[in-house]
Amino acid sequence: MTVTLATLTRRTGLTVLDHLEQSVRIPVVDGLQAQGDLIVIPLTMLAGSVRAALHTAWRPVPPAGVELLRGEAGGNPHTLVADPGTCLWTTQVADPDHLAIGMFEARAAVYLLHPEHGGTGCAPGTYVVRRQREREGPRMRLVAD
């Protein structure tokens, strides 16, 4: 099935800004990809440093999707959307860089949806989701766009 922004908004009830193209197929990517201040990293790339915590409770992604991160002002969320029964996710991730906010295991293509950044697809696989940081002198802060 061809998945477009229109498909995802219908499925989740979430909306995106109307200047984004609604009817084009959303590309599905099997590697590293970024959506604004969020990045999706194939677990193999981080193997050895990042892993799910011991006794992690993996939860199924519900039909309405899972909010991974919400932007600060205006509160625009990055939402993970999957067909029922195709994706498990957890927030219990051990990351030495303290940037990981979650991890998901997709058995079919799953999608990240954001009101301003639109949609992007992830091929089946296990991925780590990280936030973005910046630093000025000794001060570190997490980016919130």
Binding site: V29, D30, G31, L32, I39, L99, R133
Partner: peptide, 12 residues
């Protein structure tokens, strides 16, 4: 994002 240059250059 806590990644090396080598890894980041693979951003698709």
């Amino acid at each position: 994002y806590g990644l090396s240059a080598e890894h980041y250059s693979l951003l698709q």
